[in-house]
Design a protein around this nucleic acid. Structure first.
Lengths: 243, 243
DNA sequence: GTTTTCTAGTTGTCTATACCAGTATGATAT
DNA sequence: ATATCATACTGGTATAGACAACTAGAAAAC
């Protein structure tokens, strides 16, 4: 029996071939732009039919790991550019990816009646309470952003300052079992007002990057509105687009 | 011969089956959440082998149109929510979506030796030529942004002012048959310099939104670098995130 | 009535084969 | 030297069948 594949294991052969190919690419035995063995070659080597090899290769082509050229061969694709901000990242994760340490100073943790714009953005009725959390976010010990977070009290009845000091997203996803599925961000340039300039330790009227993020749970339930003001001299927003 | 498929036409059978299924879904003969005929049923109806039907269905599953449940059947997926600004949009499309008319004033259309930063971003060797295109972008007849586009001459040897006045993306995709697959954008806030303020008709040192976009063709071939400067009082950047 | 077993139907995996359609290369004819 | 052709590769499409894994419901056993 061919020792390359385990035929007594419940893993499909095509899946094992996928793993084999991915590993060889990882080990750079098959390099980007180089051809991998042909389908017929692989089918002989693994002692499986060519259709089985094709299933493995097709999956990797769909995943963007390989690409085929008719009459020529199948090649290893260039790695996709790294997705720094794909998905939702917390400030902490974001700074970590940028190679900076992050810390934060809690300025306010209140339960307030939702102001009108927040109420509308969170689809709340008049009089409903929200958490209003204000923090200074620091990167490498220096101020990076002011962050104002609003979340409906009814969705998180037991939110505390301690939890806020840790990872709110972690708490929501793992403790409460709610998944944040989508978000929309609106990004604009502004001039810092006196208060912002003061907190961020920059001259008044300096340009700042203002980001408003609205996050949704499953079924498009609004979950939070975060208004952030970043120092423009320290922060650039990066976003990748796949078509 | 089975009249449902044209066997004397160069279109693959699996492709014709895909089209058939998509049409039935479009016509709501197969509704969301409802089961489509089984693979065996389809293979009999079309008088093709089941593997051919599977190829069609697999493609639609990968495209998110259908989903399979082992032992039960194959179902029509719910339509995805429309992504307003997902994907790469041209200035024209962007303004259209925002309900504004767009126009543009060409300030420069040059072929120049690539400056160092552009050369590095486009992976070009020293001395290679690039198009340098400068435009004022107007929305509702008023200045909205300054746009500086750089594209390698070798990728588009026959680019002309006329093409630039139209849709470059259209030209690239449909005339040249190259597909733009990915892009990265870096967004930051700045204070407008004298020249920018002048072109955009805003006070000097006003905040502006600076967006640098780098687009890629297939296989991560860099295709263009666009540096845009938007009036912050008129433009907000919106981005949606799916997890 | 409740539980278990059977059965028919579904998708999942896999084989062995065939022929088509592009590509590259070397032999051959000009 | 330069075309042209033959050939031997590559991936693309398609067949007919087999058995496995899973689901739902009907039939049988209790």
């Amino acid at each position: 029996m061919n020792p390359l594949l385990k035929k007594n294991v419940p893993l499909p052969l095509y899946y094992q071939i996928e793993e084999y190919l991915k590993q060889k690419i990882e080990e750079e035995e098959f390099e980007a732009g180089r051809m991998i063995p042909s389908e017929r070659e692989l089918s002989e080597r693994f002692e499986v039919s060519r259709m089985t090899v094709r299933q493995a290769v097709t999956n990797l082509v769909n995943a963007g790991v390989l690409y085929r050229e008719k009459g020529k061969g199948t090649y290893v694709a260039e790695k996709k550019i790294e997705q720094p901000l794909k998905g939702l990242t917390s400030f902490t994760e974001d700074m970590k990816k940028r190679g900076m340490t992050s810390s934060s100073r809690l300025l306010a943790f209140d339960v307030i009646e939702a102001p009108r714009d927040i109420r509308e953005k969170l689809n709340l009725e008049e009089g409903k309470k929200v958490y209003g959390i204000q923090r200074i976010r620091m990167a490498d010990e220096k101020p990076m952003a002011i962050e104002n977070t609003f979340m409906p009290k009814e969705l998180l009845p037991d939110l505390s300052e301690e939890i806020v000091q840790g990872s709110i997203y972690n708490y929501v996803e793992h403790e409460l079992g709610m998944a944040i599925s989508q978000a929309r961000q609106i990004i604009e340039a502004r001039a810092a007002d006196e208060e912002e300039a003061n907190y961020l330790n920059i001259p008044p009227h300096s340009p700042v990057l203002h980001i408003e993020r609205k996050s949704f749970l499953a079924h498009n339930v609004p979950f939070e509105v975060v208004k952030s003001t970043y120092r423009a001299d320290r922060y650039k927003f990066i976003t990748d687009i796949d078509r």
